[in-house]
Simulated assay, not measured.
Amino acid sequence: MKLVQSRSDLHYLEKLDNENRSRLCNTIIADIIIIETMLNDEKLDQEEWYCYEMPIYGEVYCCENEDKTKHFTVEKGYEEKYLTPTYITNEVDENGHNNFPCRTLKESIEKNRLYK
């Protein structure tokens, strides 16, 4: 899986002191390894995917395939799990949320209506 950092991500990282920058980068790398394992477990080729949003400001990883036709999201700390596949909708629930947990990355890909 490839990582793509935005200019705002890089700008934010540059402002952190070395210890906090190192801690955040190590966390992101460890999380990406877990996401790669999730991809492998579901027989999805990790080389076809890249992560274009990392939880520098929030708790969500957004990933898409190389031709930008499929997307999945993984959220930190959802339902007492460290990393949980989620999907995003254009509608919000009664609490104002538009992201919801699901069981698999394939389900996340199927349900990510925000990108369709």
Rank of each mutant, 00 (worst) to 15 (best):
E79R: 13
E75A: 13
N65T: 12
E80N: 14
K76I: 14
I56A: 00
V60N: 08
Q46Y: 09
T73E: 10
V60F: 01
G77E: 09
K81N: 15
E59T: 07
Y78K: 15
V60D: 05
K70Y: 12
G77F: 04
E79G: 13
Y57G: 00
F72N: 12
D67P: 02
E53A: 05
Y82K: 09
T73K: 07
E64Y: 02
Y78S: 07
E48Q: 09
K68S: 11
Y61F: 14
Y82M: 14
T69C: 00
D45H: 12
E48N: 06
I56L: 13
G77C: 10
P55M: 08
E47H: 11
E80A: 14
I56M: 08
I56S: 01
K81H: 13
C51Y: 00
E53W: 03
E48L: 07
E79W: 06
W49F: 09
D67A: 05
Y57C: 00
G58C: 02
D45Q: 12
M54P: 00
K76W: 11
E47R: 06
D67F: 04
Y57N: 06
Y50R: 14
D45C: 08
E66F: 04
E66Y: 05
Q46P: 12
H71A: 02
Y50M: 12
N65C: 15
F72T: 15
W49A: 02
N65G: 01
C51H: 02
V60M: 11
D67W: 03
E48R: 05
D45S: 13
E59L: 05
E47A: 08
V74D: 11
I56N: 03
Q46D: 12
P55C: 14
E53Y: 03
K81M: 15
E66S: 10
Y50P: 03
E64I: 01
E59G: 06
Q46I: 06
K68E: 14
E47C: 04
V60L: 06
Y61S: 02
N65I: 05
K76F: 14
Y57R: 06
H71V: 07
P55S: 04
E75W: 08
Y57Q: 07
T73V: 03
D45L: 10
E79V: 05
H71S: 11
C63D: 00
K76D: 10
K81Q: 13
T73C: 06
T73G: 03
D67K: 11
E64R: 13
K70G: 03
E59F: 04
E64S: 04
Y78M: 14
Y78A: 09
E64P: 01
E48D: 04
Y82P: 07
E66C: 05
Q46N: 13
Y78P: 00
E66W: 00
